[in-house]
Design a protein around this nucleic acid. Structure first.
Length: 424
RNA sequence: GGAGAGGUGGCUGAGUGGCCUAAAGCGCCGGUUUGCUAAACCGGUGAGGGUGUAACAGCCCUCCACGGGUUCGAAUCCCGUCCUCUCCGCCA
C-alpha cells in the first residue's frame, strides 16, 4: 500500500497510475479521510491531555468535594474519548481499505500499455523432424504423470507425478538451489500455510468469491499460493540495521491455487494446476539496492533456463498487467512446443520489484546507524523454478522422434540417466 | 491435546494500582584521557502520530505481545487471542 501523505502530495500522479493500470480507486477519498483522521486525532489528544491532568490532580486532592468533582469530570471525559476513538478507528480502517485498492507506483521504464514488451529472446523455438506431442501425451506414453488418479483423489487439476517425473522435480529443486547458493542466497524451506493477515500483507485477498486462495475451515490459516507469502512474512514487524541488508533467500514450498475465474484457459495438463512445487527467490533491501537486485534476479532466472537449454524470451510487463504490489515485473516465457497449434511461449517465471509497497503493510523497516527514525525496506521476489511448468517445457522441448525424452544435461546428476526411454 | 510458567526498549532484565516521565547492565554514538588499540571516566542513546519551524528546537498524544474490560488513574487487576518455555501425552 502507498503512504497516505504520499498520495496527498502526488495526487495526480497516483490517479494517472491507476488509469494506466486499469484500477478503479477513489484516490481523493484517501485525502478526505486523512483530513478527517487528523481532525479526530487532535480532538482526542486534547481530551486525553485533560484526562492525564485530572488523574494527576485526583491523586493529591484531599478535599472530598473537589476530589469528587474531578472524578466526575474524568468519567465524562472517558466517555467522550471512547466515542472519539471509535470514530477514529472507523476512519482509519476505511482509509486503509481505500489505500489497499490503490496499486503501487510504476517504474518509469515499464511499458504504459496493455501489451507486454518482449525485450530479449534467447534460443530459437525448438524444431522437430516429426509431429511433436504435447506434454500430456508424452507424460501418458512414458507413464510420468497420472492425471486420472489426481482427479480421483483430490479433483480436477491435481496430479500424481510418477517415475522420472519425480526425479526431474527433485533434480530441478536441487539444480536451482545449487545455482542460488553459489550466488549467496540463504536456503529456506517455508511453511505451506500462513495466516490470512500475512497473505494480505503481501497483497493477496484470501477470502471472497474471486480468491485464488484455499482457506482452512475454522482457522485463520490459508494454503500459500507462493513462498513469496511466507518469505515476505518471515520478518513482519522487524526493524533491520541497514548493514544487515540486503537479505536474499531462496525458498522451497508447495503452492496452492484455486484458479477460480480461470476455467477453460490453458487448462490442459500441468500448465494450470491446483498444486505445484516452486523454488522462489525473495529479498529485503534498502531502496537504493532494489533496482540492481531486480536485474540480478532476472539474470539468475536466465541462468537457470539457459542451463536447462530451454528457449525463452524476456518480457517487461505492461502497466495494464502489473497487479497491485509490483513496481516493475519481468517474466520469462519458455517455448512450449505443445501449446496452441504450433507451439507458443508460456510464462515460467516472474520477478517483481515491489519497492516499499509490501513492506509498509508488513511493517518491515530498517534504520541507519546513528540516525533517528526508520525507513521501509524494499522487497523483491522472483521465481527460480516453478516445477510443473518447467517440467512441461522440458518434456515438450526434449522429446525425440522415437518417443523418448532426453534429460537436460544439467539435471543428469540427480536423475541418474540421459534419457527417459519410450515404453513397450 | 493436558498441566504449569511466562511475553517489558537493539539485547539482558527490575518493576503487583498514582513517586513509571520504565531501574540497572550490555550494546551503540559522542567526548575526555591516551604512541596506536584497549581500558577508565563523562554525556547521549526507542517507535508512531499531531502541532510547530525555512530547517532544527519545542510542546502534546499513543505504544510494556495483541484485542477488549474494570478505574478519576493500568506495564501492574480481569477476560479473550496469539506466541514462547517446562513437564506430561501422542507421533513421523
Amino acid at each position: 500500500m502507498l503512504d497516505a501523505s504520499f498520495v496527498r502530495e502526488n495526487l495526480e500522479a497516483v490517479k494517472q497510475n491507476c488509469r494506466n493500470r486499469h484500477v478503479q480507486a477513489d484516490v481523493d477519498r484517501v485525502v478526505q479521510l486523512d483530513d478527517e483522521r487528523k481532525r479526530l486525532a487532535q480532538q482526542t489528544q486534547t481530551l486525553q491531555q485533560r484526562q492525564n491532568e485530572i488523574a494527576r490532580q485526583t491523586k493529591s486532592e484531599k478535599d472530598p468535594a473537589k476530589r469528587q468533582q474531578l472524578i466526575e469530570e474524568g468519567k465524562r471525559l472517558k466517555e467522550e474519548v471512547a466515542s472519539l476513538e471509535k470514530q477514529l478507528k472507523q476512519v482509519q480502517s476505511e482509509q486503509r481499505a481505500v489505500l489497499l485498492t490503490i496499486p503501487n507506483m510504476t517504474h518509469p521504464a515499464a511499458p504504459v500499455s496493455d501489451e507486454n514488451k518482449v525485450i530479449k529472446t534467447v534460443g530459437e523455438p525448438t524444431r522437430f523432424e516429426f509431429q511433436p506431442k504435447d506434454h500430456v501425451a508424452l507424460a501418458e506414453a512414458l507413464d510420468l504423470v497420472d492425471f486420472e488418479a489426481g482427479a480421483k483423489v483430490a479433483g480436477q487439476k491435481f496430479y500424481f507425478l510418477k517415475n522420472e517425473a519425480v526425479l526431474l522435480e527433485l533434480a530441478l529443486v536441487q539444480y536451482a538451489f545449487g545455482i542460488l547458493l553459489r550466488e549467496g542466497y540463504t536456503p529456506i524451506i517455508t511453511p505451506d500455510l500462513a495466516r490470512a493477515e500475512v497473505l494480505e500483507g503481501i497483497g493477496f485477498i484470501p477470502r471472497g468469491p474471486e480468491t485464488q486462495i484455499y482457506s482452512i475451515e475454522n482457522t485463520d490459516l490459508c494454503l500459500i499460493a507462493t513462498a513469496e507469502i511466507t518469505l515476505g512474512g518471515m520478518h513482519r514487524d522487524k526493524i533491520f540495521d541497514e548493514l544487515e541488508l540486503p537479505l536474499k533467500y531462496v525458498g522451497l514450498s508447495h503452492c496452492f491455487r484455486t484458479e477460480a475465474g480461470a476455467p477453460g484457459r490453458d487448462t490442459r495438463g500441468l500448465y494450470r494446476v491446483h498444486q505445484f512445487t516452486k523454488v522462489e527467490m525473495f529479498a529485503f533491501c534498502t531502496p537504493d539496492q532494489s533496482e540492481s537486485i531486480h536485474q540480478e534476479m532476472l539474470s539468475h532466472e536466465e541462468t537457470i533456463f539457459q542451463g536447462l537449454g530451454l528457449p525463452y524470451r524476456v518480457v517487461d510487463t505492461c502497466t495494464g498487467d502489473l497487479g497491485g504490489p509490483a513496481y516493475r515485473k519481468f517474466d520469462l516465457e519458455a517455448w512450449m512446443p505443445g501449446r496452441g497449434d504450433h507451439g507458443e511461449y508460456g510464462e515460467v517465471t516472474s520477478t517483481s520489484n515491489c519497492t516499499d509497497y509490501q513492506a509498509r503493510r508488513l511493517n518491515v523497516r530498517y534504520k541507519i546507524a546513528g540516525k533517528k527514525g526508520t525507513h521501509f525496506v524494499h522487497t523483491l521476489n522472483g521465481t527460480a523454478v516453478a516445477v510443473s511448468r518447467c517440467l512441461l517445457a522440458i518434456l515438450e522441448n526434449y522429446q525425440q522422434a522415437d518417443g523418448s525424452i532426453v534429460v537436460p544435461e544439467a539435471l543428469r546428476p540427480w536423475v541418474g540417466k540421459e534419457r527417459i526411454a519410450a515404453q513397450k
